[in-house]
Structure formats: C-alpha cells, structure tokens
Design a protein around this nucleic acid. Structure first.
Length: 787
DNA sequence: CGAAAGGATGTTTTT
DNA sequence: CATCCTTTCG
C-alpha cells in the first residue's frame, strides 16, 4: 500500500477533498490553494493573459482547472464570463460538480466543444440560415444522407464508397476548408469527386435543416470568422476561457478558441503533447506546441510531478514514451513508492488471456486486496471486448463495458429516435426514409424512389410529398394511401410535441405500431429489442426529471452528443472494460492492457508512417499512466479476430520498457482449465531477452504446447507464409495440413486471394477453424489424401 | 412488396 | 464475425 490517495476510476485528481462551501458564500481564496503544490498554485492564481499549462499524466490537471474556475469566481469574476471546455460530457459533468462543491450555485458554462457549438448555433444559427430546431446527423445518418445526395445527383456510379467521400468531407470541415477551398486544391480523381459532391451535400444539408457532427465546430468557426459583431460580443462575454486536453484540438476548435480570445486574451489551455491520441480525427498537436508562438507573452507552467502512479509505473511509462522522436524531451517524476513491478503476461490465445485475467481479478478481490471497481481492462479495439464479456459471465464477475453510445446505436432505438427527429424537424428526409416503412406499411423501394422524384420536383421534403402522393400518377394507389396515412400519423403526433419526451416516445411506440410489431414477433431477438425500446422511455424519463426544461430537442441533443464514457457508472462495484481511447482522463488502481501485440497495439493501420506509430505509442502511454498501483500488460501467441485465427507477435512496445524493472510471466504452458486459484505462474525475472516468439520449429520448443514434440526433421518445414504474407498455391479441399497449435486437420474450404486467402480446416480435436493462410503457422502434409 | 437465404465484403480509435 | 448487398421466391 504505497500510495494512499484516490478511489477507483474517477476522473483525475479525484483524491482531493473538496467538501466545503456553505450556501452562496465565496470561499476565502487561500483556502483554494491549501493542498496544491507551487506550480499548481501558480497556474490557479494566474491573473490575466494567456496561460499554457503543460500537465504530465497524473499531475492533477483537472484539479488545477476546477480550482482555477473557483479562484476566478472567488476573485469576483462573474460566472457567466467564464467558459470551460472539456473533452467529454462526463468530464464536464464532474467538473461542474466539483466547482459546485467549492462554489455552490455557480453558473459557469462547462461543456464539450461540440456542446458549445450547438449552444452557439441555437443562438445564432439564423445568421447561417439554420432554423432553431435543426437536426444533428451522426456518422450513420451522414453516410446515408450522402449516399442519397449522390444518388439524387446521379453521381452514384463512381467507384468510391459514400463513406469514403463522407469522411473526406469531414476531414475538410475539420480543417476549415469550404467546398470552394476544397475544389481549388483537388488534384487526384478522388478529390475531384469529393469536390463535386461536397457543395451539393452542404446545400442539401441546409435544405433539410440538418447539420453533421463536424458542422458543430465548422459552422461556429465560420460564424466567428465572418460575423465580427457576434465575435466581439462573445469575446466580451467569455472573458476567461479554459480548455482541457488542448493537445487534442483540431483546426476548427483552434479557430473558435482564437476568435474568442482576441480582445480578452485570458485563455488558459491545459494539455500534454504526450497524450495526443486523436490525430486521425483531425487533432493537430501543433496547436499546443505552437501556443507560445500564437501568444508570445504566454506564461508557461510545467506540471511534471505525477501523484497518481507508483514509481515502477511512472518509470516504465517514461521509458516507453522516450522512444518517440517527434517530441519535446521531458520526464514524469513521482515521489510515490516504487510499488510492485509492471508485469507482462504471455498467454496461449485470446480466450486464455480473457479467462485468466478475469480469474485473477476475481482472486484479487476475494483476497480482499482490491474491489472490482478498482480494476480496469483496456483494449485497443472494441472487438476484443467480446471474449471478455463471456469470461466475465462465466466467472460471475461484475463488469461494465464502457460504450455508452452502444445503446443509442441499436437499430430499434435509432428507429424510434428517427421518429422523434421527424416530429421535431419534418424536413429530415433521412429520418423519414428510415421509419416510413418500419413497421412494414407496404411502402417499398420503388414507391420511395417515386416519392423522391415528386419531392425533388416540388422542392419539398419527403414528408410533405407524402401528403400529395395521391395526386402523383406514377405512385400506385395502394402505396399512395399508405403514404398519406403515414403523413397523417406524423402530423397528428406533431400536435403532441409539448409532451415530455418519455410520454411522447410512448405515444410514438403505440401509434406507429412499432411496439405492436415487436410484441407480436416470433423472433426471440425482438423481445430484447422491445426491452431496449422501453429502456429508451426510461432514459427519456430520467432525462426529463433532471432537465425539465430541455424538452424533446434537449433529449435528442444529449443523445446525439453522448460519448462513450458518458454512460460509465464510476460508482458501481464492477470491473470497467473500455478502449484505450476511452480511458483518457481516468485512473484506476489496477490496470490490465490486453493484446499488446503487433498489429493491434500498434495497430496495423498505423504502421505505414512514423507519425502514426508514435500516436500508437502515446496511446499505449495513456493506458499505462491510468494505473495507480498495478499495471499488467498482456499478449497472446494466437489471436482470433473476425472469426479468423492468426499468429500474434508481442508488441515492439514491450521491448521498449525497462527490461530490468519489468516482470515477465509466461502462462502458455499452464492449461487454463486446470489452473487452481493457488497456482503460481512461472516467473522469468529479469528475462534474458525478448519474450519467446512463436517461432520456427528449430528454435525454442517451449513456446507452444500441443502438436509439436520436436525432432520431426523428415517433414517439410512449417509453412510460414507470415514471412511473405502471400497466398499459397495448391491449397484445396481435402488437403491435410499440420498446424502449430491445432495439430493435423483437413482443409474443408478455401476462399479469397492474396493476403486475404482463408481456409476452413477441420481438426479432430478442435473442430472447424477458419485460418488466414498468409498468417497461419502450418505445413501441408499430403496433397492427395482427400476422402 | 417483402421475407429469407446466400454471398461478397470489409474492417481502429470517436466528439 | 457481422453487416450489407443481391438474388430469389412467394
């Protein structure tokens, strides 16, 4: 028990005691500084002018921001003059609460950039010809909308996927490039197609009174750029601005910040270049690196001291991140005890990994060393949470997978939400198309196509066109009747928009027949869908109770802006499972990072260029520095992904850790099914070299259990196509192979080509497995013996 | 028109 | 593996 602060899984800086504050009275300013170190105090008490706080992981940066807000209030700055931007809604909510504890009843605006964007657009959207009840399209809606746009313009015969074009447009908006800007620099064919589609997409988007996600930053940035009176008004209104996670801002966000800090340059940004992990989304690390160039008079405060983690964890993290070349050299320091070593665990496969990690957590809790909520498991990709899920269920260990989004992303909920959006904004054609035939009303693709033509002719929305369907000669009578009836349904529901959101959802469920459809279904999945939809009603009710004024628009807005961590319950005594990205800003006593393997961490898509590789390293760094007391890094020799089994190689990042300080445990030889709680793993400490890599048959014989017993030199060598990553000639059903792990089996089917070539193999002991030919370690035994 | 079945296909991270 | 797409048939 080396360190003695903090609870599991709350946002950083959680250990502080911020209970104070009698109603309505401002605290004495000094009281806000009592438990801060010198640098933190300087940051909190900094007066006017730009301020850059370079805060290392675990250095208490959230605490600095909250205290600074409180300090400003205590100095008499009116709350409405302060603007604080956080990275997630969850962080905003916690910050609000913490400031609340210091200064009860404060009215400081705290939220994400996107929420702030919505806030601005609702106020000033009319300047951009945007109605007050605009719809926010998520990525799926956006893609569907773009597809429809291209089809309507007869541009759909290009070979590019709408999603690809959509993401190019998204990127353009993040870089504040208008359609005209984009067109000017479009050189290759793809860019030219994008340049053609982008303006159409924008025009149509405004027509249906919708904005996409990027518009929530792009449009406010334009607004501030082109409307000087609004800009100066807001600049004056927000005298003091604080931005958290500044290293992950993109150009649009940067523009917003700059425009609001021209007349009153009281801008405080906090961040850590080593924790920049959203480059792929347009974040530009230069925003923080060049802050001093933008504001030459900026005060810069470094917070290198880590209060969160043990010496062992800090040391390992330092060593890893030092391998990044594009980086200012710096080191985290800690005065915390050294603690237990960072451990690296080697497993046979992903199932083993999940099973044993969960088992170990259970034992730890049963031994009374930690609670479930003290544990977190991080993964690089969401797909890896599946195996974990079943392991948790099997062991009866409580857990939560942090993906708040998932609930609203379910088809049934998106359907219901689409109904609601259509009610709020009848122009929303995406919503219309989504629900017009759900439940089935006899309105098929041909009818929709004809309706689209009608709407295009009249220049009206699909819903408005539906009302006129009867007069359109091309639409069949039965379909027209169904359409007018649908129109009547929506019109009628629209008269009840004054109802609280949950009651309205209930009404929609009944009147639309959606509930009926699920209730009377034979499909067992539909019962679950019914439950989900009812859960949506509950969510709406809870929202309404918390925000009685917000109404349906508010509810839809919250749903649209929800982030993964927002749904996370940090009080529940459960193990948290999340992606490395979602872990940013959190802390846990015990952290496991799974699948620290080449291709996953670093991810294979990030291997092409050095900058992306460095981002992967930062991602690993972020995950490691979430740990307070124990850090476990896991990898396996075989990894099943998308139903295909591949050989996995330990991540190069593992080699970059301080070898003499890290403990390596190889669990590949223990059978997970027979391991008893008391069993102790074999320890190699310190390891003589790299952890054993599943390798050519001639080398170490200890790496894999199973079929190979050594000494079979008469046989051809194992076919290691991983080395050349190519397809294999002559593979066909009937051929017998020997696999490193599963032994002898017969090929049942072969499909695909090149690196994607797969084979389905039946193994007597393991059943049928699908293998990636280019990756799997196997050799062909017999070309003839089919049967 | 729409349900069902088969096949091709693509894949990170998320406000 | 899971989703999306096409095809097919009622």
């Amino acid at each position: 028990m080396e360190t003695n602060r903090g609870h599991a899984g709350q946002a950083e800086g959680n250990g502080e005691q911020e209970e104070r504050g009698r109603q309505g009275r401002l605290p004495a300013p000094e009281a806000l500084l009592a438990d801060l170190n010198e640098e933190q105090q300087r940051a909190v008490t900094h007066g006017e002018g730009p301020l850059l706080v370079l805060a290392g992981a675990g250095s208490g940066k959230t605490r600095v921001i909250t205290r600074r807000i409180a300090w400003l209030l205590a100095m008499g700055i009116p709350a409405e003059r302060i603007l604080a931007i956080t990275f997630t809604n969850k962080a905003a909510q916690e910050m609000r609460q913490r400031v609340e504890r210091l200064i009860p009843g404060h009215r400081v605006w705290i939220g994400t950039f996107h929420a702030f964007g919505v806030h601005l657009l609702r106020q000033f959207g009319d300047r951009l010809s945007l109605s007050r009840s605009f719809t926010i399209y998520d990525v799926d809606d956006r893609n569907a909308f773009l597809r429809a746009t291209m089809e309507a313009a007869r541009l759909d015969n290009y070979r590019y996927r709408p999603e690809g074009i959509a993401s190019a447009i998204s990127k353009a908006k993040n870089q504040l490039r208008s359609p005209a800007d984009y067109a000017r620099s479009a050189v290759d064919h793809f860019a030219q197609v994008v340049a053609e589609v982008y303006p159409l997409y924008e025009r149509r988007l405004r027509q249906v009174q919708a904005v996409d996600f990027d518009d929530l930053l792009y449009l406010p940035a334009l607004l501030l750029r082109e409307h000087e009176q609004i800009r100066s008004h807001l600049d004056d209104r927000y005298r003091f601005i604080l931005i958290d996670e500044y290293q992950d801002t993109n150009l649009a966000q940067y523009e917003i910040v700059r425009r609001l800090s021209q007349d009153h340059r009281n801008l405080c940004v906090v961040g850590d270049p080593d924790q920049s992990i959203y480059r792929w989304r347009g974040s530009d690390i230069r925003n923080i690196l060049d802050f001093e160039r933008d504001f030459p008079d900026a005060r810069v405060i470094h917070l290198p001291r880590n209060y969160r983690s043990t010496g062992a964890i800090v040391s390992a993290a330092n060593r890893l991140i030092a391998h990044n070349k594009q980086r200012k050299k710096k080191e985290l320091r800690t005065e915390n005890a050294w603690g237990v070593p960072v451990r690296v665990w080697t497993f046979r496969d992903g199932l083993d990994e999940a099973d044993q990690v969960v088992r170990r957590i259970k034992e730890t809790v049963q031994a009374g060393r930690f609670r479930y909520r003290d544990h977190a498991i991080f993964v690089r990709i969401n797909a890896l949470t599946r195996v974990l899920e079943s392991a948790f269920v099997r062991h009866g260990v409580p857990f939560q997978i942090v993906k708040g989004f998932a609930f609203y992303e379910r088809k049934e909920n998106k359907d219901v939400l689409a109904y609601l959006r259509l009610l709020v904004n009848p122009q929303d054609d995406v919503a219309f198309e989504r629900v017009v035939n759900v439940p089935a009303r006899g309105i098929g693709e041909t009818t929709i196509e004809r309706l689209r033509n009608l709407a295009a002719e009249r220049g009206c929305s699909l819903l408005a066109a539906a009302a006129e369907a009867g007069r359109c000669t091309t639409i069949k009578a039965a379909s027209a009747r169904a359409l007018t009836q649908f129109h009547r349904l929506i019109t009628e529901l629209r008269t009840r928009l004054d109802l609280p959101p949950h009651e309205l959802i209930d009404l929609v469920l009944q009147r639309s027949g959606y509930e009926q459809m699920l209730q009377s279904s034979e499909d067992p999945d539909d019962q679950e869908r019914l439950a989900n939809v009812q859960e949506l009603v509950t969510a709406a009710r809870q929202f309404h109770e918390l925000n009685p004024q917000a109404g349906l628009t508010g509810f839809l807005e919250q749903v649209a802006l929800a982030s993964d961590v927002d749904g996370w319950d940090h009080e529940a005594d459960r193990v948290s499972v999340m992606t490395l990205h979602a872990s940013k800003g959190l802390e846990f006593p015990v952290v496991y990072i799974l699948a620290v393997e080449e291709g996953l961490l670093p991810h294979e898509r990030a291997l092409r260029d050095e900058a992306e590789l460095e981002e992967e390293r930062r991602l690993c760094f972020v995950g490691m520095t979430r740990a307070m007391r124990e850090l476990h890094l896991c990898h396996a020799h075989l990894r099943e992904y998308r139903g295909v089994i591949r050989c996995a190689i330990p991540s190069g990042f593992l080699d970059e850790l301080p070898r003499d300080q890290v403990e390596w445990h190889d669990l590949t030889s223990t059978d997970s099914n027979s391991t008893r709680p008391g069993d102790r793993p074999i320890v190699y400490a310190p390891p003589p070299s790299l952890p054993p890599v599943p390798s050519l048959p001639s080398s170490s014989a200890s790496d894999l259990s199973g079929s190979r017993r050594g000494g079979k030199s008469i046989l051809p060598p194992l076919h290691r196509s991983a080395a050349n990553g190519e397809a294999v000639e002559g593979l066909a059903p009937g051929i017998v192979i020997q696999h490193e792990q599963f032994g002898i089996g017969q090929v049942v089917a072969v499909s695909g080509f090149g690196a994607q070539q797969r084979m389905k193999v039946r193994f007597p002991a393991h059943g049928e497995k699908t293998l990636l030919v280019a990756q799997a370690p196997f050799r062909i035994l017999n070309r003839r013996s089919g049967s």
